[in-house]
Design a protein around this nucleic acid. Structure first.
Lengths: 148, 148
DNA sequence: GTGGATGCAAATAATTTGCAGCGCG
DNA sequence: CGCGCTGCAAATTATTTGCATCCAC
């Protein structure tokens, strides 16, 4: 049910006292349907496909609002434009395939646990974290499988 | 021997065929002496203190060069300006104290090992990674120590 | 109705680049 | 002594903002 993500965004909006306007509804829907990590320009493009009147400024303003409400995460995988994804589900981190530029999500509770431990050791409590691992695909070398 | 960092930067410059100019020498020295994670504007300020002729454009160009040579790391701890540190020593990650904005380095080989394992599980080899943990200081609660 | 939200265009912020002259190798 | 590097200013890129109008509550 990918549709739920958009509804969650809308619910959060209403709850915060912000107005549920047409542009925000559209942007929430675009975010909810996104399987990738679009930047503002791409969000604008997709939003305009649904409602041509939506301005770039509104996309920027809306993303800032959503980020403050804690319903999206802003990423800076590379220099240049910021990229977004709707948070809400289970936390995950990212691989960036440096060859293809592709961003892949992954879960690693073991790493998170270790992070909390290390932070505690330094006298800190974790509020949030960002882990980005830059990788390349491992070639399957012939004979790498356990031979008989 | 903090001075060694600057020498390492200079050595890498010569080795790459790039020219060892006065501005680059100054910027290498500023980086080598930095205990923090200065942004370009701050690097420019410090460089100008040693040689008033150095331009902001040169600092930008030099940092790009150093980054390509792999002798400095660019960070984006928060939106806005990029911040730098000279790499070269042992790899480390960062805590960002969200209250004070302070950036603290830490080592956690255990986490790195786990990352490599998770990456391998997904068919990847790690080229690099960035882990930033946003934290707040833990108040020492009375009686939090193991009681008798 | 009315204050928050929008669109547009102009403003800022961060970084890059064209060009003529200078100096490292 | 040539080509890479520099400073300066103008150009680009990413994001924000002022303002008149509009519409969700």
């Amino acid at each position: 049910m990918t549709e739920t993500a958009a509804s969650r965004l809308e619910a959060k909006l209403k709850g915060s006292g912000a107005r549920l306007t047409a542009p925000r509804r559209v942007i929430a829907r675009v975010l909810g349907e996104a399987e990738d990590h679009p930047d503002v320009e791409e969000l604008h493009r997709r939003a305009q496909a649904l409602d041509p009147g939506i301005s770039l400024a509104t996309v920027y303003r809306t993303m800032r609002l959503f980020e403050q409400l804690g319903v999206v995460e802003r990423h800076a995988f590379s220099a240049g434009r910021a990229r977004y994804e709707h948070g809400g589900e289970e936390h995950h981190d990212h691989f960036v395939d440096v060859k293809s530029g592709e961003v892949i999500e992954f879960h690693a509770p073991e790493i998170e646990a270790l992070q909390a431990e290390v932070a505690a050791r330094h006298g800190y409590r974790i509020l949030d974290h960002r882990l980005v691992i830059y990788v390349e695909r491992v070639e399957r070398v012939e004979g790498s499988d356990k031979p008989a």
